[in-house]
Design a protein around this nucleic acid. Sequence first.
DNA 1: GCAAAAGTGTTGAGGGTACACCCATGA
DNA 2: TCATGGGTGTACCCTCAACACTTTTGC
Lengths: 226, 226
Amino acid sequence: MKSFSSYKNPALAIDLVVFGYHDDRLSVLLLNRKDEPFKDQWTLPGAFLQMEESFQDACDRVLGTKLGMNKVYMEQLFTFDDPARDPRGRVISVTYYALINPKKFEVVAGKMANDVQWFDVRKLPALGFDHKTIFKTAHQRLKSKILYYPVGFELLDETFTMPELHHLYECILETKIDRRNFSRKLLASEYIVETGSRREGQQNRPADLYKFNKKLKQNNFQLNIN
Amino acid sequence: MKSFSSYKNPALAIDLVVFGYHDDRLSVLLLNRKDEPFKDQWTLPGAFLQMEESFQDACDRVLGTKLGMNKVYMEQLFTFDDPARDPRGRVISVTYYALINPKKFEVVAGKMANDVQWFDVRKLPALGFDHKTIFKTAHQRLKSKILYYPVGFELLDETFTMPELHHLYECILETKIDRRNFSRKLLASEYIVETGSRREGQQNRPADLYKFNKKLKQNNFQLNIN
DNA sequence: GCAAAAGTGTTGAGGGTACACCCATGA
DNA sequence: TCATGGGTGTACCCTCAACACTTTTGC
């Protein structure tokens, strides 16, 4: 049996598309690179995979050290293999997307970055590498996923109102959704539970607060949009 | 900027779940290994990624040299990263699943294998590495995919009858489907077109032959099962 | 003529869409 | 009391699920 070390292997990177919902809009976290290649340009956060590290470990490392986050919802997206995607040589990129509540974390630029910032998904700057493609793939995946899986709660606070949830869905799907039908559908799915309290101190009638039903494991939720 | 060669990288393998439909059942192609590890055991076909090779190239290489196939429907499945998944050391496995018509190819055991064989998905032998997990992931993906994307045609001949298509769906989904509702639904979707001819020489009433409508690019096909 | 399988049509129930009205709050 | 936004109810339509009869072939 041949030894592995006799083969030369491509480098393996982990790149993350971190979505956040803030100020009534969907955003992505981007990093301004301090070093070449793509110095001073915006890219997705990422890192090279260490030899003993699982993907999860690598993602946690990026989220922890570069962004000051932990325990976030994450899912594998796609593995990008274009031999020309990195000017330094052959780099395979295994990508994940994450959903976080920006209020819970203070983003910090790590050693490798000039800056870290949230960008409205509709107003992204030019991105280095093939990161625009990666972002588009993630955005599309999120749009599909949210229609049959209750993934939006990860972006909101522990408790939230129906109008807040409604607006989040409109934001992600980039469509109008009838709020009454939306409300009925979500309540019928049993994915959300009333808390009994309301969001007070707003301009108008206080909205009921709900929370995600964590006990519910399986469901045939399917949101149909007009 | 650091040189890449200073880093040691995990090995990168490509593994394939090749589905075929034959004798009214769904099968997977397995390979009996000639060498350690898992010598004389069944595994999914695969190979190490070459330095300059894209995933597509690597898949074509495996399908071509080990299985004598070309130009098949293929889709990326998932990338498996368990550091202990290969006894030889750290190997990341990027997996694809393929759909082929077994009648079109004569499978041949390449240099690396004792044997290559189709196995009924319901009667798989023990598999080496984490290939059982990979298979299950692929099977599940195929089940979901076929409900909203006309992927079954890849497994059939150029022309096929409605009962054949119906049985294929029942096979993949492992459920009974009402044949009348199924037929109406498929015809309404415009994914299939009448050829005008019929399957003659059978025991009973000849069935109409259809073919896949290749012109149709986009559709909101969604099959609902009882 | 009979068995077996293929083609086709109908009906009723349920879910979704598209609506309008009432309610609670701050100013 | 008025404007604004949140909560709730209803009717129609359309789709889907359930089901039965007719047709064509081989023996």
